[in-house]
């Protein structure tokens, strides 16, 4: 159904034309992209945009409903919910981007190498990846977080690691196709080095699945971060993070202070939605075969 737009190449003018065509064909994706940019700017300028310090507690102003002083109300410690939602964007984007880039890149590298060299190593890596994807991603991430300990950085590593086997399998499949093509065989025949072949011929050809997986990871990573923090195994207090804001008091006092539960959840949903529509559009544009 979706029309394929040729892959962007290094040539600048072609890229511009590609972008223009993308904007024309996928308005939803563009909308998603705009939301993400706004989000990123908010996160970057959080210090100036937030009405107050997200960590500042005020025991005289606990559970204040949304109003003039606190646009989105305050939480169980009297902290400003709006400020925490704004600063929470930082945590979400930081964890989301780092985990997705890290996981996708490491996974892709392993996939390409595994496909290129083949043999026993390939076999072992494949079995391992097969096994790792037989665990629900949240269970894998839970165990890794338990091993590493909580906190934003460990959470990034945990989420990234649970992405690795998933992208590895996809990239390896694409890379394997190229590995068997005549030009790679020819390059090997004329004695080109392994790394030269990998970087010149194989890597450019797995860019499409890489990007597609990457964008689909972004939303997932943010959701995972929220879920793990919600379960008390992710980012820890007092760091402002949306999932964390939804755990504990937000649930305990949902009827008394519903704003504590509603706004962080909306923030998660909007962000993930934006990433997902952008991801969908990119996938359709890059490679409709990868549509799931």
């Amino acid at each position: 159904m979706a029309t394929t737009i040729p892959l962007p190449t290094v040539a600048g003018f072609r890229r511009q034309r590609w972008l223009a065509r993308f904007v024309r064909r996928y308005p939803m994706g563009v909308a998603g992209g705009v939301v993400i940019i706004v989000m990123a700017v908010t996160a970057a300028l959080a210090t100036w945009l937030a009405p107050s310090d997200p960590l500042r507690t005020d025991f005289l102003a606990m559970f204040v409903p949304p109003g003039a002083n606190h646009l989105l109300g305050t939480d169980a410690f009297g902290r400003d919910v709006l400020s925490r939602v704004i600063f929470g964007a930082r945590t979400a984007l930081l964890v989301g981007f780092s985990a997705s880039f890290g996981g996708a890149t490491v996974g892709a590298i392993i996939g390409v190498i595994s496909a290129y060299f083949g043999g026993t190593m390939d076999l072992i890596i494949q079995r391992l990846a097969d096994i790792l994807i037989s665990f629900p991603i949240i269970i894998l991430a839970l165990v890794i977080v338990a091993i590493l300990g909580s906190g934003a950085f460990n959470l990034i590593v945990a989420i990234a690691l649970s992405f690795v086997p998933r992208i590895e399998l996809v990239v390896r499949a694409s890379a394997l196709g190229i590995r068997r093509t005549a030009y790679v065989e020819a390059a090997r025949a004329i004695g080109a080095g392994h790394w030269r072949i990998i970087f010149r011929h194989m890597v450019p050809n797995v860019v499409a699945p890489y990007l597609v997986m990457l964008t689909s990871f972004l939303g997932q990573a943010i959701l995972l971060e929220a879920s793990l923090s919600f379960l008390g195994l992710g980012v820890t207090e007092p760091t402002p993070a949306w999932g964390l804001m939804l755990s504990g008091a937000a649930v305990d006092f949902v009827q008394r202070a519903p704003w504590m539960a509603i706004f962080p959840g909306l923030a998660i949903t909007f962000t993930v939605l934006a990433f997902n529509v952008l991801g969908d559009s990119l996938r359709d544009a890059l490679d409709p075969r990868l549509r799931t």
């Binding site: 929220a226 939804l246 993930v272």
Partner: peptide, 22 residues
């Protein structure tokens, strides 16, 4: 359906509880 993918199910759960309680 896209919104469904983006909504954390635990949040949906909290909202459902809020709805039932209120």
């Amino acid at each position: 359906s896209v919104a469904g993918l983006a909504t954390p199910s635990f949040w949906l759960g909290i909202l459902l509880i809020l709805f039932l309680l209120t």
